[in-house]
Every structure is written in structure tokens, then in C-alpha cells.
């Protein structure tokens, strides 16, 4: 199995505040990988380190076989074209329509003619299940679920191999959240994507995540599929999965 992301002994500090102290994890090709942890456990920080927005103080990160800690600007450019990122609040450019948001990378980086780009935009919109008329709307005119879908379409615009999602279902109602989970799974299957998602939505973990890592105490307290993680006796795992919310779910079976 090909390894897509390999992080070893990451140390991150903000001033005196140590966020990660020896975090290691591995993401394999083709899986949906979850990053879990309570608020402030450094999940999003870790994600930002994978996508070159933040540099850890020590450790090594390899993403798609690039050494993230020692990238030349050219390599960084190449790497950035091979992933797509959905930010928590969508981060759609508010001065552009949805269609323009999706097309922006294609327009900047390729010489494709406008009709091909329009066609690609149309396909991506369909893939994420947005209606045709959404193409001409501005981000301010979209609902929360539509913003996430538009952000996903933008992330998919360049046919990435690797997709990063920062809390994809936060702020969505349960029905939309489930729909979005399904969509991610479908896209993974048809596009052969590797998906890394930061989440604390227990339902997502139960339904779509293949393997995941739980962050706590500045470290990865458990990594693996659901059964492996549940076997761990770590108090953080207990708090996460054996609390009231976790219980209800396991009683109904999964």
C-alpha cells in the first residue's frame, strides 16, 4: 500500500505553548483518514502543517513523497497542484461567483480555452450535487451546505490526488451532514482520492472514516481503524467514545 502522508515526531510550539510533542501518523493511498481530538488538541494545526501553511519546529513530514520540511519553491508549486483543500468556512472568494471560484485555478495555471473550463466547472458542480443556477451566485447568497459543496468543487477543480477537509460537516444539519459524508465517500470511490479530514463529528467517524488518529496530550493517543482505536484504554478515547453521545450510537449498533 502506498503511503501518501508520513509524519514523524512533529513538534509544534507557539511561544511557550507546546501543541504537538512527537506526533507521528501515516496516511495510506485511497483511504479516508480522520484527524480527531478535542478543541485545542492541535488537529487543525497539524492539517495546516501538511498543507504548507505552517512549519513545525521539529520532525519530518512527507506528503505525496515530497519532503515538506525541505521544499524548493518549485517543488512546493508542484505539490500544491496535486491536492485540494476545503476550508472550514469554505473560504470562497467573495468577489467571485461560484463558477469563477471553481475556475480560478484552471484559469491561472492552464491555457485551456474558456469553453473547456466552463465544461469542467459544469462537471464539478454536478459532481458535488449543486444545481446549475448556483454557478452564477456569489458566496454571500449561498446556504451553509451549498458553501461547503462549492468549496469542495473548487478543491476538486484541478483533479487532485489528495483532498484535505477541515471539519467538512461542522455547521451542517444532520441531513446535510449525512449527504455530505456520502458525497465524500462517493468521490473517493470514483476519483480514487485520498481524503484527510479533521473532524469531531462522531457520525462521520462511524460511517465514512477508514482509519483515524486521535490527538490528545500533545501526541497521537491512538491510530488505526475503529476497532483498533476502541480497544485502546486511554482515558481520552474513553471520554470520546464512551461518553453519553458515543454510547447512544454504539447501542444502536453501527
Amino acid at each position: 500500500m502506498t503511503v501518501v502522508i508520513k509524519a514523524r515526531d512533529i513538534v509544534t510550539r507557539f511561544g511557550d505553548n507546546v501543541v504537538h510533542d512527537g506526533v507521528s501518523l501515516t496516511v495510506n493511498a485511497g483511504e479516508i483518514y480522520g484527524l480527531l481530538g478535542g478543541s485545542g488538541s492541535g488537529k487543525s494545526t497539524l492539517l495546516r502543517e501538511f498543507i504548507l501553511l505552517l512549519r513545525p519546529h521539529a520532525g519530518s513530514i512527507r506528503v505525496l513523497d515530497y519532503d515538506v520540511m525541505a521544499l524548493s519553491p518549485f517543488q512546493a508549486e508542484q505539490l500544491r497542484r496535486r491536492w485540494g483543500i476545503l476550508f472550514q468556512s469554505g473560504a470562497l472568494y467573495s468577489s467571485l461567483t461560484v463558477a469563477e471560484n471553481i475556475a480560478v485555478m484552471l484559469q491561472e495555471y492552464t491555457d485551456l480555452s474558456s469553453d473547456v473550463i466552463a465544461d469542467i466547472v459544469h462537471i464539478k458542480l454536478n459532481m458535488v450535487g449543486l444545481p446549475e443556477h448556483a454557478a452564477d451566485l456569489y458566496p454571500a447568497e449561498l446556504s451553509g451546505g451549498m458553501i461547503k459543496r462549492a468549496g469542495l468543487a473548487r478543491a476538486l477543480a484541478m483533479d487532485p490526488e489528495l483532498l484535505f477537509l477541515d471539519e467538512p460537516t461542522s455547521g451542517l444539519d444532520p441531513v446535510s451532514a449525512e449527504g455530505f459524508d456520502k458525497l465524500i465517500m462517493e468521490l473517493r470511490d470514483i476519483l480514487g482520492l485520498t481524503v484527510v479530514m479533521v473532524t469531531h463529528d462522531l457520525d462521520s467517524i462511524w460511517t465514512i472514516v477508514d482509519r483515524f488518529a486521535v490527538l490528545g496530550d500533545k501526541k497521537v493517543v491512538a491510530e488505526g481503524d475503529l476497532d483498533t482505536v476502541m480497544k485502546s484504554q486511554h482515558p481520552i478515547i474513553d471520554a470520546f467514545f464512551k461518553g453519553e453521545r458515543g454510547h447512544i450510537r454504539s447501542r444502536h449498533g453501527n
Partner: peptide
Amino acid sequence: DLLQKYRMAGASSER
């Protein structure tokens, strides 16, 4: 197949 599927979908709803 994938592109044909998503290209045709929604093509009926003309702008």
C-alpha cells in the same frame, strides 16, 4: 464514463 455521467446530468436544465 464518469465525465459523461456528470456532463449530461443537469444539461437538461437549460440556462
